[in-house]
Design a binder for these strands. Structure first.
Lengths: 288, 288
DNA sequence: ATGATGAATTCCATTATCCTGAATTTATCT
DNA sequence: AGATAAATTCAGGATAATGGAATTCATCAT
């Protein structure tokens, strides 16, 4: 296997959602269209609305969308509506950091799923969110925040997501908490105090147990995947029915999750080259 | 559920790989960079090489990559190398056509996987390829052409891919065959004659059985998902160990695959609105 | 460890390219 | 089928992208 060097470490210095400069380059304006499409109706958006949302004229939006379509990033569905095209799947499959980690983790996911007979998630941090990179379904029907591959949750919501947040450097953790508190409240859960105590517990014991009933009948366990400096770069988690995580089974689940997480961490940091890339302070992220 | 109208139908009029106009807009040149990144080393590509491949100056490539990075589409790994970033996963999860079909098909995949205890694939056509939109793992270790979600195979290679190609309109099928023959030979398999006879058989019986030993020890069954006009828009397929597809089990597998495929087709074409969008002839696709 | 090579990044004047507003075509609704 | 609204095309003026040259940075060899 090719060495991953410290790639995953560097990537945890994630950018802000968007250093929203009003006067971005034309390329950046065009890329924003893709984001607009991704957030709109999956059936597609009307040119007029796209232009309005993007804050540009209709002909401009039209030309950009034509270019995006010509390159396979967007497409026009029935009714002339624009939406994202299939090529994102193809590109996502080859996204460097992600595909490397996913390939490295897949055997672990399969083992876990086979052993536990439950649904297993692989999450990575991306800015203020955790993104589901892979998931292997168990035989039991599951509801999760993360949803499918590519699904996003604010850091702090859900097993794996909490496990990651709990194991970030303190300054980053603080910044994420400040940013995410309103989003968490928005989703109907967790005041700041209970979040902080959950984080303290998670960090202390090295794993997260969500039998909190945030999703009725569901429960889960999440463990962080740590780099050489003990920073969380990813998380493995189990989502299952609450009744399947009783006091008997929980320790067992935690144990084998942790052992897979440690093995994975070992694969990702074959040498401690990571030390050569000291973490920039959060204040420099997304600056100007 | 919201009606899908004829969205999936329209999308089968897929564009050529790239109407390679030398003087494309600056946006299209920038988007090509993403493709270059996706095809290069997952660890990342050097600016110099990117610029060279793209045929633009180094400063230009640099500026575009900075913009791509600022919007979360690319990132710089260790050693300054550029690669695709995580946001592709997030966007792929919300790509209209794809996510609609995937959501519609997921219950079927889960049922099939549970019933058959094998790995189930959902494939859709994209140009001259079949793309894996979703896959649910069975307990047996599988090797497939398609690989993971987002994986691509030339139409004609593998169960589901063959099932799609076999059920395209004749002129499109012919165009795809002509384009793909070299690619298929490249991958070491199938002369044109055996491809054509396999297609005829597939179309006649409505399903594909690959126990051909193309991948040693592997076998599979694929069935097309047809739209109102009988054109293939997707395929469901099973990949398993050859020994698990014996004469006893095969008819059973085919039967339940077909029944799920028909149910899925019904979901996708609630009304026959599709007829309102007659298919353009292939010759107009990618013209000029 | 230090110097030399090559890459990455910044700067700036030139010029190609993009943007706005108006006109035309196409789709949608009554 | 007519009317309305959206989508698309078109053209000149203005902005923003481009590539050569210079600088900073990283990497390699000695």
């Amino acid at each position: 296997m090719k060495s991953f060097s410290s790639a995953f470490v560097l990537d945890s210095q994630n950018q802000m959602p968007a250093p929203d400069t009003d006067s971005a380059s034309s390329l950046r304006r065009a890329l924003k269209l893709l984001r607009i499409l991704s957030q709109g109706d999956p059936e597609g958006l009307r040119l007029k609305d796209i232009a309005e949302t993007a804050g540009c004229s209709q002909p401009t939006a039209h030309r950009m969308l034509q270019d995006l379509a010509a390159e396979g990033f967007a497409e026009q569905a029935a009714g002339k509506r624009y939406r994202l095209a299939l090529d994102f799947y193809v590109l996502a499959a080859r996204a460097g950091q992600a595909s490397g980690l996913r390939d490295a983790a897949r055997p672990a996911l399969l083992r876990l799923s086979a052993t536990l007979s439950d649904t297993i998630f692989l999450l990575v941090r991306n800015g203020f969110d955790a993104v589901c990179l892979d998931r292997v379904e168990g035989p039991f029907p599951i509801r999760s925040f993360t949803g499918d591959i590519g699904g996003k949750v604010p850091l702090g919501l859900g097993q794996g997501s909490l496990a990651i947040l709990a194991n970030l450097p303190e300054d980053e953790q603080e910044a994420v908490i400040r940013f995410n508190i309103p989003r968490l409240l928005d989703r109907g859960f967790l005041d700041e105090a209970s979040l902080r105590s959950a984080l303290a517990l998670a960090r202390a014991q090295g794993w997260v147990n969500t039998s909190t009933g945030l999703i009725p009948g569901m429960a889960g366990v999440g463990v962080p995947v740590l780099d050489a400096q003990g920073r969380a770069v990813a998380a493995l988690s189990v989502g299952t029915l609450a009744e399947r995580l009783n006091a008997d089974r929980l320790p067992h689940v935690v144990k084998i999750l942790q052992s897979e997480a440690q093995a994975l961490a070992g694969k990702l940091n074959p040498f401690d080259v990571a030390l050569r890339y000291p973490s920039r302070s959060l204040s420099t992220i997304g600056g100007s």
